[in-house]
Each structure stands twice: as structure tokens, then as C-alpha cells.
Nucleic acid binder design. Structure first.
Length: 606
RNA sequence: GCCGACGUAGCUCAAUUGGCAGAGCAGCGGUUUUGUAAACCGCAGGUUAUGGGUUCGAGUCCCUUCGUCGGCUCCA
């Protein structure tokens, strides 16, 4: 585009285009499936959708027809005409048209002054306007909508319909289930193609696919939602676990415990989980008692704290625990490693005096920064504040707690978003959201302030004045769950893990049988130096072995032929395809050592 | 859990309107001793996820159960 064009013909913004495309899509569906009832159709990140009750329902095969009809409507360039009407007038029209969902939205607006349902906002009606509503007409299609829109239906860009799925009306399981059609639209065909290419690339990185190809983990129908960690995946898991243990226990002033998985119902009643979390717990009958598998470590840690008389001098007490947790997720919610029924967290509970909160939070923010930087992960911090409709405790405490968190963020120069009203009922929190290769956000790390559990378990410490005081608990996890974090790492690195966590760090490739002995020596030396090295003695040619090692994304390939056997070296190839030539084994070890964080100047392991 | 789609060899996928279940890779046996992304020949591999039904005949049509995927809801 020339500069001149961009000045005279500003392109509509993508959100407006996408929202307008949703209208055109709804119009197309109405043409093809008369009697369709419309829900809502907003623009979302990269895409748009419309929820509809379509007579007889549609399948994926119908999408090309709908797309074709959209192209026809686009070609006709119908103007998006705005019309301001009274709510009663609008009600009449949508009632007459049998648009029950629109009628409900308008009724809500009139009666409650908003169309909001919980934190989910429907965008058809401007909540600031309670006397009139705006309609948009495009050809024969009229929709309740607050706009804005592009000029005419020809301006909805280069689009494609992507996906079809179910969605409850207003996100409520008890309400009718509508069909949601997803599409995407962009300024140009090139941008559309690029987006479609991105989706394809992201699919190649899918941890479920790579997990199988790289032999990291598997699932079996007999254990839905519970991963089997295969030998290579176990190395990865264990390496991360050891790294975190070292960071916390060796360097960070934490102590580690192992605690029971199965607890009497009484514990869960005390902690409040029986009330709030029962549906997500596995409960079983043991003799004449009910026992629950733990979904979190916190109640157990309360018992550990309470098992001794604690002095103010003992605080902060930081208890780390990598125990197995179970949550009874609904079957439809299970997904690869990111939503499972059994997992471990790099969990810890910090028992602190009120005056220690801010410095503890600061330390945690630094820890998050350090760990995420090591993996090169992008993240966004979010401060969740009190939900006025659901909180325990007094306002003063809440205010102080929120200020503690905010001050810690500010003093560490960390940009953050505020999520008003998103706090847990027991205290405010900082969540850390990581963006993965699919552009999806995952909540991994979390830092939560809790004044309630110490109360429920009547935890105290003795102050310097002999009085009993109540400690504050900080729940925190840096990886979150190992399962989800590994899923993210797989997609982030596309399976090409950094050397220090790679399940196999190098493979030794003898060219012919006569090189096996020297190759075994090389393997032996490298293993002695502490590296994870395999030997490929198959009677295949070098090309074949190289290809297999590349596909397994092994960081280093060490080729042993006549020349290397003679000189006591290995010809080093990296998975990036570089051929570094023959290198003496001692120098290979040096090179490997330099790739372990903590053994270089940039160390995280010290 | 709900809506929709899917389930064929270890993996990736074929199989005409309902008419003999097939290929590549992997595996196994042989031949080849190989220099930076797939050597060659052969063999074996299946109650088409599961249980039932319709039919002369079912991978294909209908129902059940289980699982997976995309969403909704919920969340580490």
C-alpha cells in the first residue's frame, strides 16, 4: 500500500471488520437455514463467532456453503445502516421475528439496565444506554447491535470459516445449547494465509503430537486424564523437579515435605474444600469413613504448621511439596497434559508475619522473573482484587493485602494488569499468564495471599511479647503444575529442548562396526561426566542415523569414523545442522558443561 | 457433564452406491560396513475402539459403552 492510499483510505480496524463479518455470516446462515435464532456474535482475538440456534443443526460440511453465501452478500456491498429505536420498539420487532434470544437481551436491558451475565459481557447492547437500542441493517438482515461497523458488506476483508462447536446461551449449562461458528478475517489474502499458516505451524508443535513422537508420555483409556511418563519424559520431569528443588531448598530458604494423598473428610470440612471444591474431588469410603484424595496441598501443610508451637523467630516458614494431586475434572474438560486429573505442582506455602508479606512477595516476583527468563517465556502479571460480592474477612485487611501485592509489583518495576473482582474469596492474588505457541494463554505461576486458612486451622505463633498471633499464608507455585508447564515447554521449543533439560543430550553415531569400540568409549566418558548420551549401533548408514537423531531433536550428534577413532575425537554436528568438525572428547565435555545453566556466568543454579 | 465431530496395523493414512480390509514408515529375518536428514530384498502385523441391532452381506447404516478432538462450563 502506498503512503497516499493509506492516508486517504484508512482501513477499518480488524475488530470492526470481524464484528461486521459476524453479521454477514449470520445473514448467510439465515438465508440458508430460515428460522435460525441469533444469540450473540462478537469479534475476539484474531477471530469472530456467532452463536445461533439453527433449525436441524449444521455440520462442518455446511461451512463452505455458508462461506459461499457470505461471498455473495459481500459482493453485493450492502450498506450497514444504523437505526436508533426505543427498547419497546426493538422488543416488538424481535418478538415478531421470533428472535427469542434478542428479546431476552432487550428485556434484561430494560429491567436490569445491563446485559451482563457475571463477568461475561454480551456486546449487543450498550449498557450505558437504557432507553433506546441501535439496530444495524445489512440488506435484508437486521441485528440488534451497538456497532460500530464497516461501511458495507464488501469491506469485511479476506475471511474464512474455521470451526463449529457448541456454546450455552449466556454460558449457562441450564440454558439452551447453541451452535457457534468461528471465522477469521483479515485486511488481505496474504494476512489471512499467514494466519492459516500460523495455525498449521502451531498444530505441528502440539505437545500431544510431539509427546508421542518424542516418546515423552502416553495416555491409556483405562486412566483418562492421567499421564504415563515414559523414560524420556521422566528425565525431563525429574530434571525440572530437581532444578526447582535446588532453587527453593538449596538457595531459597525453603524446607521440603512429603505429605499424605488421602485425608479424612473432616480435614476438608475444616479447610472449606468440602463446601467449595467437593465436586472436583475424588471421595472414597474407607471402612465407615469418607476419605478424599487431595486436590491441593494447603490443608495438609496447615497440619504441619500446627504440629508444633511456632515462634515469631521461626517465620517465615516456607514449606515446599511436590506431592501428587488429584482433581476430578469433568471428562469433557480433559485435554492432553494441560488439563489432567492427576498432577504435581511445585507447590509451597509460606507462613509469614504480616510485616514480612511485602518482602516475601518481592522475593517471589524475582523468582518468577528468574525462572521464566531461563526458559525465555513471555508472560503477563495480573493482580486480582476483591470481589465485592464474594469475600471473607474485613475490608481493611483486604485493602492492606492488595496494597502489599501492588507495592511489590511496583517496587520490582513489573508491568501488570488489574483484574477487578477476580480474587479468590479468601484473598487477592497475582497470576502469571504465559503465552504458548498457539497464542493461548496459560495460567502457570500464582501468588495468593490467604488470611482464611490460618483462621480455620487456628494457627498461631508466639510474638516477642508472649502473645499469640495469627500468621498469614502465601500460596505460591512457579511452574504451576509440572504437567502443564512441560506441555508449554514442548510447544514453546517445538520439542527441541535446551541442552540442560533434553532427555537425550547427545547420540554417538559410529559409521561402521569397527568404530563401535571407540564409540562406546566416548559414550562412557560423556556419561562419566554426567551427560545423558545414547549410542546408535544399528546397521544403518550415517544418513539414516542422522535423520533419526534430527527427528528426535537431540542437541548433539557425535560421528565416529576412521579418522575420529584414530585421533580420539568425535565429529560434532548440532541439531541446527552445523558441522563443527572433529573435536577431542575432553573439549566436547567442556562445551557441554558450558551449556548447563549455573555452570556459566549466567547461572541460575549457582 | 453438555453440544458437535471422530475412533481402520505401533505411527500416518487408503478401502467406489453396503460386496474379498490395503499402503508407507516402524518391527522381525536376510543382504549391504556405510562420512552428516530415509540402502535393498523378504516376512509378519487386524474380531475395523466396545457391545448390540438392521441386512443375503456392515469398516461403511442404527443404538449402547469407552476414549479422543473442537467448543461451552470450570480451572494448575
Amino acid at each position: 500500500m502506498t503512503k497516499e492510499q493509506s492516508m486517504t483510505e484508512p482501513q477499518p480496524d480488524l475488530t470492526t471488520m470481524r464484528h461486521s463479518a459476524a453479521h454477514v455470516m449470520a445473514a448467510a446462515v439465515e438465508h440458508l437455514f430460515p428460522g435460525t435464532k441469533l444469540g450473540v456474535g462478537p469479534a475476539i482475538e484474531n477471530r469472530f463467532y456467532y452463536d445461533m440456534d439453527i433449525p436441524g443443526g449444521i455440520t462442518r460440511e455446511d461451512l463452505p456453503r455458508i462461506e459461499e453465501e457470505m461471498r455473495r452478500i459481500a459482493a453485493e456491498q450492502h450498506i450497514f445502516e444504523r437505526e436508533e429505536v426505543t427498547i419497546d420498539g426493538a422488543l416488538e420487532r424481535f418478538r415478531a421475528a421470533g428472535q427469542d434470544f434478542k428479546v431476552e437481551l432487550l428485556t434484561d436491558l430494560r429491567e436490569r439496565g445491563t446485559t451482563r451475565v457475571g463477568s461475561h459481557e454480551d456486546v449487543d447492547v450498550d449498557p450505558a444506554n437504557v432507553t433506546s437500542a441501535s439496530l444495524y441493517r445489512t440488506g435484508d438482515f437486521v441485528d440488534l447491535c451497538r456497532g460500530p461497523h464497516v461501511k458495507h458488506s464488501g469491506e469485511i476483508g479476506a475471511f474464512k470459516l474455521l470451526e463449529i462447536s457448541g456454546a450455552y446461551w449466556r454460558g449457562d449449562q441450564r440454558r439452551p445449547q447453541l451452535q457457534r461458528i468461528y471465522g477469521t478475517t483479515w485486511h488481505s489474502q496474504e494476512e489471512l494465509d499467514h494466519y492459516l499458516w500460523q495455525i498449521e505451524e502451531a498444530e505441528k508443535r502440539d505437545h500431544r503430537k510431539l509427546g508421542r513422537e518424542l516418546g515423552l508420555f502416553m495416555f491409556h483409556p483405562y486412566a483418562p486424564g492421567e499421564a504415563f511418563w515414559l523414560p524420556k519424559g521422566t528425565v525431563l520431569y525429574q530434571t525440572l523437579s530437581d532444578y526447582m528443588r535446588r532453587l527453593l531448598v538449596h538457595d531459597g530458604g525453603y524446607v521440603e515435605v512429603r505429605s499424605p494423598l488421602l485425608f479424612n473428610r473432616a480435614l476438608w470440612e475444616t479447610s472449606g474444600h468440602w463446601d467449595k471444591f467437593r465436586d472436583n474431588m475424588f471421595v472414597l469410603d474407607v471402612e465407615d469413613q469418607q476419605m478424599g484424595l487431595k486436590p491441593m496441598n494447603c490443608p495438609g501443610h496447615m497440619l504441619v504448621y500446627g504440629s508444633e508451637l511456632r515462634s515469631y523467630r521461626d517465620l517465615p516458614l516456607r514449606i515446599h511439596d511436590q506431592s501428587v494431586l488429584h482433581r476430578n475434572e469433568e471428562s469433557g474438560n480433559l485435554s492432553g497434559l494441560t488439563r489432567v486429573r492427576q498432577f504435581c505442582q511445585d507447590d509451597a506455602h509460606l507462613f509469614v508475619r504480616p510485616d514480612q508479606i511485602e518482602s516475601e512477595i518481592s522475593d517471589l516476583l524475582r523468582l518468577v522473573k528468574q525462572v521464566y527468563a531461563l526458559f525465555g517465556l513471555e508472560y503477563q502479571m495480573e493482580l486480582s482484587t476483591r470481589n465485592p460480592e464474594s469475600y471473607l474477612g474485613d475490608l481493611e485487611t483486604w485493602e492492606r493485602a492488595e496494597n502489599n501485592l501492588r507495592d511489590a509489583l511496583i517496587s520490582n518495576d513489573i508491568p501488570y494488569l488489574v483484574k477487578e473482582g477476580d480474587a479468590a474469596f479468601y484473598g487477592p492474588k497475582i497470576d502469571i499468564h504465559v503465552t504458548d505457541a498457539l497464542g493461548r494463554e496459560w495460567q502457570c505461576a500464582t501468588i495468593q495471599l490467604d488470611y482464611q486458612l490460618p483462621e480455620r486451622f487456628d494457627l498461631t505463633y508466639v510474638g516477642d511479647d508472649q502473645q499469640r498471633y495469627r500468621p498469614v499464608v502465601i500460596h505460591r507455585a512457579i511452574f504451576g503444575s509440572f504437567e502443564r508447564f512441560i506441555a508449554m515447554l514442548v510447544e514453546h521449543y517445538a520439542g527441541a529442548f535446551p541442552f540442560w533439560i533434553a532427555p537425550v543430550q547427545a547420540v554417538v553415531l559410529p559409521i561402521a562396526d569397527r568404530h563401535t569400540e571407540h564409540a562406546q568409549g566416548v559414550v562412557h566418558n560423556l556419561r562419566d561426566a554426567g551427560f545423558r548420551v545414547e549410542l546408535d549401533v544399528r546397521r544403518e548408514n550415517l544418513n539414516h542415523k542422522i535423520r533419526d537423531a534430527q527427528l528426535q531433536k537431540i542437541p548433539y550428534m557425535l560421528v565416529i569414523g576412521d579418522r575420529e577413532a584414530e585421533s580420539g575425537a568425535a565429529a560434532v554436528r548440532t541439531r541446527a545442522g552445523e558441522n563443527l568438525g572433529a573435536i577431542a572428547v575432553a573439549d566436547v565435555i567442556q562445551r557441554f558443561r558450558s551449556e548447563i545453566p549455573g555452570q556459566t556466568s549466567e547461572g541460575s543454579l549457582q
